[in-house]
Simulated assay, not measured.
Amino acid sequence: MTAKKQTWGPATLSEFDGVRFLHLDSIWVQGAMRIRKPDQLELEYIQRMCAWMLWRDPNALAEGHAVQLGLGAAALTRFCHGQLKMRTTAVEINPEVIAACRQWFRLPANDTRLTVVNADAAAWVTDDAHLQTVDVLNVDLYDHDAAAPVLDDEDFYRACRGVLADGGLMTVNLFGRSASFARSALRIARAFGSDQVWSLAPTKEGNTVVVAGRGVQVPHREVLEQRAATIESRVKLPARKWLRLVRPLPMSILTAI
């Protein structure tokens, strides 16, 4: 018997006030790019997905391997590959999204530092070939309704931890004003350990970025402030604001572990 071929809804775009938006057969925004400034991270939550830089030496970023689970409009992929000069892998299950990013969102062709893979993120993180090969893992996995993460159980987050090298970091986009946030954050804390998970305050749209590490040593405050200043100078992202917003997970979540 031949397996039924997976079909996907069309990837479409809209434009408003100089910004191009990606949609997946719905009104919900899956990503954005300012047309005249394609290297700029347009959405605030996407900027905060880069908060992992506070936990790493900003002068050695190019040495790492960055992986995005969920391509969106390729903003993080373009940023890690183009601006940070990291070896970058993007894993996207929907071939329509990859084609749209190549046509409309300045996603470059694969090269020695960039690999875009048409694959299931769950299968990718459970492949033994990827164990401890990733320094930075960005997880942003939503379907066309953008209602809740597609992959959000404890086994998935344990597999995410498994692909991280020692000292590696994961950022995850969650909805902080939704009842599902506490459940998701608890699953992450159980997979990574409560002392290895932090969150930023929600954006005005309700997105909360959670940061989780594998054996990460938290620098002294003075070091974090220096790193934040370096990040702002180098890539023009509001890292000092991130530093004011980042917190350990609240005790109301951690007591459930």
Rank of each mutant, 00 (worst) to 15 (best):
A119W: 02
G31F: 03
A62G: 07
N207Y: 04
E92D: 15
K204R: 15
V29L: 11
F156Y: 14
I93M: 01
D39M: 14
L71K: 00
W242S: 02
C101G: 06
R158S: 10
V91G: 06
T203G: 11
K204I: 12
K204A: 13
N110L: 09
I35C: 12
T126F: 04
Q40A: 14
A185E: 03
L141F: 02
T255S: 15
T115S: 14
D143G: 09
R183I: 08
R102P: 09
L84C: 06
R102V: 07
Q68W: 01
V91S: 00
T255K: 12
R183P: 04
E222I: 12
P149A: 12
S26H: 03
P149E: 10
A75W: 01
K204E: 13
T12K: 01
A73Q: 00
A228F: 11
R214P: 09
E222K: 10
R221F: 11
V218G: 08
L249A: 04
T126C: 11
M49Y: 02
V163E: 00
R158P: 11
P149G: 11
L22V: 01
I27H: 06
T115I: 12
R190I: 01
L61I: 07
I231K: 00
M53D: 11
A99T: 09
P38C: 07
D25S: 10
D140G: 01
A119T: 02
A75S: 15
T255Q: 15
L141K: 09
I46V: 15
V210M: 02
R34T: 15
D153S: 00
E44T: 13
T133H: 02
L107V: 09
L61M: 13
Q47I: 09
G206A: 06
D195Q: 06
G70E: 04
Y45E: 02
R34E: 15
L245Y: 03
L137C: 15
Q83E: 14
M33V: 05
R36H: 13
S180P: 00
T171A: 10
R240V: 05
A100K: 01
W124F: 15
T12C: 04
E42A: 13
S180L: 11
R56F: 13
H81V: 06
S194L: 03
S178H: 02
K5D: 06
K37V: 10
M49N: 01
W28T: 05
V125R: 01
E15I: 15
H130Y: 05
E225P: 09
L131G: 03
R102C: 04
W124M: 11
I35P: 05
T208D: 02
C50I: 08
L69T: 10
D155S: 13
K241I: 11
F21G: 02
P202S: 15
A256T: 12
N110F: 07
A60K: 10
V134W: 00
Q40F: 14
I93T: 00
G9C: 03
F79E: 00
V235Y: 07
W124T: 03
H65L: 08
A146I: 14
W124E: 08
F181A: 06
T12W: 03
G70C: 06
K236V: 12
R247L: 02
V117D: 07
V134K: 00
Q47L: 08
K5E: 10
A99F: 00
V134T: 14
L107C: 07
T112H: 14
L24G: 00
E42F: 08
G31L: 01
E225L: 07
P248L: 02
H144R: 00
